[in-house]
Each structure stands twice: as C-alpha cells, then as structure tokens.
C-alpha cells in the first residue's frame, strides 16, 4: 500500500514582474483592498513599529514626497504590525510634535497577513516587526521594484522618487536609465538584437553611441 504524502504549500513571495498578492486590510482610512489602487502606481511600504525614531523620520519623509508622488499618479500605503489605534495616536503625535499631517493610509497588520504575503518579516532580525520593505506596483498591480532596508537604517526618499520617475520613463519611452539617472539626463536605448540593426544604430545621428550596445539619447 502506498502512503499518500501531502506536500506543504510552498508560499512564493512576490517577485519583480509578478502580480502583487491581493489583500483586504484595516487601515487608518478604513478597510482597503489592494484592488482599490488599480489604475494608480502604488508604493506599499512597511516599517518596524509606531512611536520609534527612525520610523518617525521616515513617515515625515514619505509625507513630504507624497504631493510629488500624487502628481505622478502614485499613492502611498504604509504598514506595520501595530493596531489601528496605535497608528492613529502616532500620526496625531507626529502632527503635534513635528507639524506634519500624515495623509496616506497605514495598514494595521496585527495578524501579519499582508506582511506575510509580501515577505516583510525577516525572522532573523525580528519575528514581531516588519523590516523596512518597499514594493512599487504599477497601475496593473504588477510588482515593478522591491527595496529592503534593515531596522537600523532609514530609507532615502529621493531614491524612491527617482525610482518611480525612472520606471515611468521606461514605460513611456521604452528606454532604460543608467546609474544615478535623474529626470532630464540622457537615457539608454536598448541594444539592437541583430548585426544589421547594430550597424544602423552606429549611424543614427540622433543617438550618441560608444559602441553598438551602449547608445544614449536625450528625451524631448
């Protein structure tokens, strides 16, 4: 007689290019579903805990870039393993002490459901707090970029803005962006896949080519 072996379910974390896992969560703005964000870019970020200094500086930083993000059709959604009342008390405290009103919703993920789906917990660092994870999703809710920082290090808001600008530029113009690229800099034209195309590329006066695989252009 053969014994039936049940394989444990393998939970795959979101990867760049995969559809983000759907969720419904309690937030400081009421119950939200991920699908509510369809049609907008979304920055879903986690922080270890409310009422902690690094997270407070990050929340102020995220709020400071929120108006720019919204101009770029991008929403912000925070998350930590805290209650909604803790979140409310903390955002009120930030407003009282720093004069910054947090306008984006924050998920109260006490069950760790969302944090688990997105792999935001790093058990070796802390099994009760989320790490500093950032998931950038496009309007189709495809994960386009993932950033992880440890508990000790606050994130760079300019980099988050730069990343979204770069992703949107790539989608709009079919180009790539080089290291340290900023809006207005030259962009990289994807290399030709054929010998003939490579030769033509070298003669294209609208491009600046070091070699067939390294051509840049200005965006007008």
């Amino acid at each position: 007689m053969t014994e039936q072996i049940t394989q444990p379910e393998v939970k795959s974390l979101p990867r760049i290019g995969s559809k983000a896992p759907q969720f419904e969560a309690v937030t400081t703005h009421g119950k939200l579903k991920l699908e509510d964000y369809k049609g907008s870019w979304l920055v879903l970020f986690s922080h270890p805990a409310d009422f902690t200094p690094v997270c407070t500086t990050e929340f102020i930083g995220f709020q400071n870039i929120y108006p720019q993000l919204r101009e770029m059709n991008t929403e912000l959604l925070g998350l930590s393993i805290d209650s909604v009342h803790s979140h409310i008390a903390w955002v009120r405290n930030i407003e009282q002490n720093w004069g910054v009103k947090i306008e984006f919703p924050v998920i109260a993920d006490l069950s760790m459901d969302v944090a688990g789906k997105f792999g935001m917990i790093m058990p070796e660092e802390s099994s009760t707090e989320a790490s500093r994870a950032v998931f950038v999703m496009d309007p189709e809710q495809v994960v386009r970029a993932i950033i992880y920082y440890p508990l000790s290090t606050g994130r760079n808001m300019d980099e988050i803005l730069r990343l979204i600008t770069a992703l949107q530029t790539t989608d709009e113009h079919g180009v790539a962006t080089p290291a340290d690229w900023k809006k207005g800099d030259r962009v990289i034209v994807p290399p030709s896949a054929t010998q003939e195309g490579a030769a033509e590329r070298m003669n294209d006066e609208s491009l600046e080519c070091k070699d067939f695989y390294f051509c840049t252009k200005e965006l007008k």
Binding site: H29, G30, K31, K33, D36, S40, R70
Partner: peptide
C-alpha cells in the same frame, strides 16, 4: 478625493 478612497468608500 483619491480614487482608492472613493472605491473603498463606495463599497462601505
């Protein structure tokens, strides 16, 4: 109002 807010509020 932001679209996400309208969708969740309409549901509620």
């Amino acid at each position: 109002l932001p679209l996400f807010k309208v969708r969740s509020s309409v549901r509620e």
